[in-house]
Design a protein around this nucleic acid. Structure first.
Lengths: 240, 240
DNA sequence: CGACGTCGAGAGCAGCGCTCCGGATTGCGA
DNA sequence: TCGCAATCCGGAGCGCTGCTCTCGACGTCG
């Protein structure tokens, strides 16, 4: 048996057992992904996952601590998926404004293709469930792509700090919080531009969420034109 | 018995039975509100509601068709509550900018006090649950308060249509959708200002949701300063 | 006063998350 | 190579959920 495995090139050091375990784990994740996509976070049933991969429910607990942990794993996976989509969109090039719109559109597109996952990431947090810190690293990829855009433009001198006299002042506490963001990126970006970026991201998020959560029903639906217009407006407001 | 009721001024036409029914219904709603506030939408259990009012679960079905209907009733109630809060804030007077910030702050405050209700209204829609049209009337009260502000300012001639040459054009389809909004209010408001209002509301919603849904964790928390700054920024951007 | 309609209680079904236990299988070291 | 120990899977079971059905009791109205 072991000889056969070695013959097939399966490293004995890797451990056939670990391989099997990894495979089952992958099956669980895949089934969980399917269940999540079809029935949503609330409908994600560990028993259904077990059924789908031909296991009894208690066996799944050997791999996953519980429903919440499976949900967390899927959240991280989804954060990375939408983050990667945003980064790909940004990397496609073009003017800064075009890249910003591309990022926003990519997030929207991903959300339309994975509404349940989007809801899991950006909708109301599942009650009784506190997102562990593991997720925040993956969760910042989308806004990071936007901020990075501003950083690049600012570094290239193509972005000027808005000096509107009626702009609200930035207090010390708020400035310190902006510093946290700046520190995270290890780059220079004035408070005003950090806040401009936050405002842009929150508006994009608000627009996409309104569409996906059905708040635009009976008014701006289909929302393609609205999104295109608003994304462009935000981009021009940012000054890129 | 009936005589006694009549003596106490209880109209016989109203029916003692109907009175009792209304009272039980009120108890169900109150218990549902408590459960919702404490355990969230997912934790809202019809059995727990029944238990709380000293009934067996099946009896509750005489009053409510099911869990979804109870949720819908609570949604409408909550929409009206936050809508009323926004309208009160707007009615407190002040400059247009002050009133706008007051509306946004009122919504934020309401959300902080009723996080589960806010999530139910503006978070991911409960899977498998389609919001009936009953809710949309109540659901538009908050954005309506904001749009109404713009309408008043525009009617008073204190608001000019932004004519930035780099502003994205408004296509025919989008303009028609803006017309729907205009028609709803029965007032005059250029497309550009409608879209400006939509943008303002989506950004305010995005900001509040980010705070309440924990997306600002480890960065802009506490978020009071950020909110104050961003709300003011949005107000000044709208031109009020 | 009687019949009808309403109401609450109870039992029951299927599903859920999760735990515990027993038997089978696997892998590693003696 | 053999045996022990770790690992793993299946089954049973607990308490919870939403929802349905039936039955007895009661109020309401003709």
């Amino acid at each position: 048996m072991i000889a056969g495995m070695v013959e097939r090139g399966e490293s004995r050091r890797a451990g056939a057992r670990e391989r099997a375990r990894a495979e089952v784990m992958a099956q669980i994740m895949a089934a969980g992904r399917r269940e999540l996509a079809e029935h949503g976070a609330d409908g994600l049933s560990l028993r259904a996952v077990a059924r789908e991969i031909g296991m009894v429910s208690s066996a799944v607990y050997r791999y996953v601590a519980g429903r919440d942990e499976l949900l967390t794993l899927l959240i991280i996976e989804s954060y990375d998926a939408v983050g990667a989509a945003a980064e790909r969109a940004s990397a496609r090039g073009g003017s800064a404004a075009e890249r910003f719109v591309a990022i926003a559109s990519a997030v929207r597109e991903w959300g339309r293709e994975h509404p349940h996952e989007y809801a899991l990431l950006y909708g109301s947090p599942v009650p009784g469930y506190r997102a562990p810190d593991d997720t925040i690293a993956s969760g910042t990829r989308v806004p990071a792509a936007m901020i990075r855009l501003l950083i690049e433009e600012y570094a290239a001198g193509r972005l000027s700090v808005p000096v509107a006299e009626d702009a609200p002042p930035v207090g010390a506490a708020l400035s310190a919080q902006c510093g946290t963001v700046r520190e995270f990126f290890g780059a220079d970006l004035p408070d005003e531009l950090v806040l401009l970026g936050i405002g842009a991201w929150t508006q994009v998020y608000g627009l996409i969420s309104f569409e996906l959560f059905g708040q635009l029903h009976n008014t701006f639906e289909p929302a393609d034109d609205l999104m295109e217009h608003q994304f462009a407006t935000v981009a021009s407001r940012v000054g890129i």
